[in-house]
Design a protein around this nucleic acid. Structure first.
Lengths: 213, 213, 213, 213
DNA sequence: CATGAATGAGCGTTCATTCAT
DNA sequence: GATGAATGAACGCTCATTCAT
């Protein structure tokens, strides 16, 4: 049953996988359909049996890359009573996600082709950062309702928290200045983000972690 | 005396200027040496008399683009007694600079070619973000010495402040989701950054602006 | 009984019909086997079960297109006593046939592929112009026998008459200079052809129409 | 002096010559830029230094092919007193021209690409058949003024005469049914055309040649 | 017998680079 | 030093043909 439908999908996935490797390594302009075909182990003609054009294949590649499951980043946060601990967990997961090779590559490629493919930049934004902000805003609003935070503009605060998670290591990885990030650096950024956020929007100053690193 | 040496330099600058226009408009892959030659008003052969290859020319283009004068962003901050007002001025200038067309193009182009030209990403980092952080750290340390701020890790706090300046509008402009930013949005981000920073690192809670927007 | 043999023939005809539409619209080089398959409602593989190659299918297409019924162009001419009236009817029918979309397309396609498919040009000639000349010669000879015409070389005179029917409108339509021809233009050419023919080969000068248009 | 300007023109002519050979042999669709480059002895890139695209090169090829000197076909006709002798000379020259390899190739290629390049069909018509008709009409009108012909519609009569010159051999050569035409066949067509024309439009029936072949 | 996925040679075109002038 | 004609490899893409199912 599965075999019958899976054969075309398998080839399709095979091509997308090849495209993933090549787009990831070369970017959009640098990738050639010949190389994608080679990487995918199919002929050039076959590529065009599955995708109308290079740009179509690129769009499919981007769209499947952006489909990251954000839900589990926030799911445990609601079960946590202490806002500081919840923020810590959120920041940690968010950073791990943003620093994953796939996310970094996607960011670079979407930024570089934003002019040529504005639609993809929008898709990237809607599926990635925007959804993350919405999740974060939801969590903040629930905390406000519980009296644990005091946030006049939850959306804006959400954006601030998420941008704080990109301090130091985010930009360095996006620029490929370093290839890996050790856990201590991540922990430093997480604590810094949580500290500033709670100082600014927390209701119980005693609950704030000390800024000393 | 100068004329003799300046003629070749003049032509060199002429080429770089042409390259600037074309790389800025088309990116690295999209720019053709023919078009750069046309834009610079020289022949293609002359291009190769001054620069070994397209990538060499690109490197020179990036290196001259990154040399932004950061000094004036911070110069007035030291003359300001009130840390909040100083931070406000710094944030405003920093955002204007980062949102300028040249900076955005440079950012996009460096990010997109980071894998192919890691050296340029390093140059970009050293000349741009890193210098900005250093300036910011210097200002913070002077404020700490004056007893106006309480910052355990000035470098890290500098990075936090600068990343807060990229809340909301920065990423949207980098992704070309919008083409312009109105001053009210910038002011909102500036106030948000200053508020969080002072709440976290200020010594006089009364001086903090109200977070209500 | 018939059904058993007709099924494959039906599919064959179905393919030829699709080919007719596509070759007619796109010419030989412009037609793709994919499009013919689509138009015929069969798979590309099936095309090759019935026809060895694109050129084979093209040959079959041309051969069936040339089979125009010329008989009815001449059938009424014999029932007409007056040679002038008979010639008028023949010329009119002949022009309508030659100016029909199918004939024009066939002419263009055979001329353009005459070098690549000399056999098809021969088939076109034998089935079309040559048969028309033979019909015309037969009619002329019967008129000569009846004493109504005086024609030393009936075949040559037949060719002259038929070529006169192509004056003005024929070449313009073949070159696509115009897309339609109005009846007045056709009538003009018909009268001109009949006039010259009767002046040259008629026995009764009084029967000739006046040349004044 | 000449050398300086001739070098680029020489290369240009070299390419056009190669294109001439290939277009002539393969038609527009069948000709490949690779083959034209090979035939012209230049690289494919050089082709594009001189001509924007294949269709541009084709247009140049057609436009230079159509520039046939029609003047000398008619020049001696005016010096001839006898209309029959003049018509004979005109018909002979016209047929030789139309049956030349270049003319035949041009006709075939323009007819086959009339749909894709309507402009070229128009150019062909204007430069070739239309100019021939105009020359012929001019000669007829002068003969009418001299009282040697009686032609109610000189333009139409010109078209009839020229189409009569295509009897038999014209269509056969256009369809490539034969590769050469012997002089006797041409003479037969010429005499037939002159005979019909003078019978229809001459003023002196005694001057008409006998139709017997 | 019908299918349509797969092929790969070939298409028109671009462009970084070279080099004779 | 400046030129720009010439190159040729590589590009995205098409399509007649094959063959396993």
């Amino acid at each position: 049953m599965i075999d019958q439908d899976d054969l075309p999908n398998a080839k399709r996935r095979q091509i997308i996988h090849g495209a993933e490797l090549v787009f990831t390594e070369c970017g959009y302009e640098g990738a050639s359909m010949s190389r994608i075909a080679l990487q995918a182990g199919v002929s050039k003609g076959t590529l065009y049996n599955y995708f109308d054009s290079k740009s179509t294949l690129f769009a499919v590649f981007v769209e499947q890359m952006v489909s990251v499951n954000l839900a589990n980043i926030f799911q445990q946060a609601d079960e946590e009573d202490d806002p500081g601990a919840a923020l810590h967990a959120i920041a940690l997961r968010m950073m791990k996600m943003m620093l994953s090779p796939g996310s970094l590559v996607l960011y670079r490629i979407v930024v570089s082709e934003a002019r040529k493919f504005p639609h993809l930049a929008t898709v990237f934004w809607q599926t990635g950062p925007f959804r993350a902000i919405e999740h974060m805003r939801g969590w903040i609003e629930r905390q406000v309702a519980l009296g644990r935070l005091d946030v006049p503009d939850p959306t804006f605060a959400a954006e601030q928290f998420l941008v704080l998670c990109q301090t130091r290591v985010g930009i360095q990885r996006r620029l490929q200045l370093v290839d890996e990030t050790n856990d201590a650096d991540i922990e430093r950024v997480v604590q810094g983000a949580v500290y500033l956020f709670l100082k600014g929007y927390g209701v119980d100053p005693l609950a704030s972690p000390e800024p000393r690193s």
